[in-house]
Amino acid sequence: MKNQVEKVQNTPENVAQPEKNVEKKGHDRKKVFLAGIIKDNPVLVMLLGLCPVIPATTSIINALMMFIAVLFVLVCSNLIISLIKGIVPKEIRIPVYIVIIASLVTVIDLLLQAYAPDVSNSLGVFIPLITVNCIILGRAEAFASKNSVLDSLLDALGMSIGFGLACLVIAIFREFLGTGGFTLTNPFNSDQSVSWLPLKDLALPVMVQGIGGFLTFGIIVGLFAWITKSKVPGKNSDTTLKSQYSTLKEIEACRKEGKETK
């Protein structure tokens, strides 16, 4: 991941105008794929699809299963929507996309309930909630409905790998601090598990619960922004920066004025 950081060029146009980039990237397949991992990482930069992140990162196995579910739904929905983009009328496209995504989510939900029941129980209602995950509908609306099948497939892969990596990093921190080590249970047969718990006595169970989730997530978003030296994370990054500049400039101007009058 550190090698890829040097390759990314965060010029002001690239970060503040993701929609424009979509048109340029249509011909550069590698950029389409890599964008979802670092520059436009859905969880850490664009802040989309945050709802399943906190409950799915309570353990590494949960994060992996959530990644697999989102990968399946995102890839299939991007493929299907880019295949039917010509025949859907513009006015009803959102309900059509939503029904396609809901059907795919029902498939993966039933599969998980059948073959990995413990994971399905611990993830709970968040597998059906992949239906309204902003990543999937956002990518369907912004990318798959306008680009070719191969580009949509690469974009789906990139976005879900970015999501998976972000979830995995947060899950590693939460599980290590929360249980004192790592426990990997076979999702399909929950009797088998391998655990390595070096710091079991120093564990902080709060990290595995909601509070630790929000804290870890916030810190990792900030650290990621710091490491990639991009601008303020969030959809309205330009507004925040502009409004902050206006207030900070005013504060600086006031301070200067105060110093000069003294």
Binding site: A16, Q17, E19, K235, N236, D238
Partner: peptide, 10 residues
């Protein structure tokens, strides 16, 4: 308009 809905205009 570009329809980016970024909110940069305020």
């Amino acid at each position: 308009l570009p329809n980016a809905n970024c909110g940069a205009c305020g």
